[in-house]
Amino acid sequence: MNVFRILGDLSHLLAMFLLLVKIWRSKSCAGISGKSQILFALVFTTRYLDLFSNFISIYNTVMKVVFLLCAYVTVYMIYWKFRKTFDIENDTFRLEFLLVPVIGLSFLVNYSYTPTEVLWTFSIYLESVAILPQLFMISKTGEAETITTHYLFFLGLYRALYLANWIWRYQTENFYDQISVVSGVVQTIFYCDFFYLYVTKVLKGKKLSLP
């Protein structure tokens, strides 16, 4: 465990927490892509299948449970509790365009051809693209609430910090995980355009709106 990993996990936790705060305080999930949130719930479900079979640490187990809970509560808020406020007309990203290649790739490029390993690989590939329906929705409506941009910033920062963690682990432990690293780089690249807008607009007190 190194500082980049801890900060990455905390950033991830803060992102999910900010999203729940936004929905709960405004009693609205306007501007949030339900499709992205379903994908994240699927990511955690398929990745943490080892929750009861592979004990790593108390920290690891607790974080997995918290992440799963946050993901499912968010989906519940969007599709049940506050579904009237859900902007379904703008959440039109075609999930099959992500799921078909990701399923195909997880069968083709994995570490071992076992059900849990293929599902773990699927979760890594899916996470790298799971934010696309959300980014697509923002580009379609041309705007995002400020708290939603904070959510996206910390969600992007989390994977960027993991990149630093992987460099650190390679240098100190000679640990590497090429599937995670390549997917993590791809995932971080998807946020670059958003990071630019966040720094140039949101941090200067302006609302994020696209021309």
Binding site: N60, Y111, F175, D177
Partner: peptide
Amino acid sequence: KNAISTHDEL
């Protein structure tokens, strides 16, 4: 060490 299949990250 190629820590494949240990998956100790979140």
